[in-house]
Amino acid sequence: MESSSVAAEGGSMDDYEALISTTDVELLKRAWRNEKSAPEILRFESHLISRVREQIQLMEETVEEKTTEGADPLSTSLYQMDLDRTLFLLRSYLRIRIQKIEKYMFHIEKTEELWNRLSKAEKTYTRACTDGLKQHLEETVLSKLPENYQSVLKQSFISEEDDMVPEPRLETFVLCRSREYLTGIQLGDGPVDDRSSQLFEMEPGDLHFICYKSIKALVESGKIDLL
């Protein structure tokens, strides 16, 4: 009897946690953590963000209502605090992305995969940034150099690839946690015969400190969370 009630309680706790972990604020927190730790820009969570915005508006209305009603100041300030925290998450999420764009604007602008990850407003912003910086570099340096050396993206006319563009370092190490059992993660780019010995597996919930490049695809598909 006792054990069954404990089990039931455990079950409801799990349900509760499962429920909490799917609220939009929790999802935003996850997206925010991933964005914060990933060296490159991730896909913009447009649906999530628009839902969070609606909720923020609702919360603002609630706080407004409480204040004009003259409700209990403690409960009003709790609502306010909740609102402030959600607002912070939203702002910080957008801010991290904007700062990544500032850092790698040329790389993002010319890489289609990354470009498609941006929201509409971010695309406009990236264009404005690259235009501004390009003009600044041209005015100070490039226009004064000989003709064959005036590219922003290339060192000189001989360069076959763009070799003047700052790119994020994907070889950096990140702390992460898997959400499910994963296998066959490939560490490093060794020759084909070596690869089988380097395959790596992850249990759900275990923490790993691992090279971002080898789990990049799993972060993008939402199977691994960064911390």
Binding site: L87, R91, L94, Y125, A128, C129, G132, Q135
Partner: peptide
């Protein structure tokens, strides 16, 4: 450049209706 960049950020923030330089 500073002026242009500042204008770009302002226009982004007004489109997204958020103030990013606080908080």
């Amino acid at each position: 450049y500073f002026k242009k960049h500042s204008a770009a950020l302002k226009s982004y923030m007004s489109k997204e209706l958020v103030e990013l330089t606080v908080d």
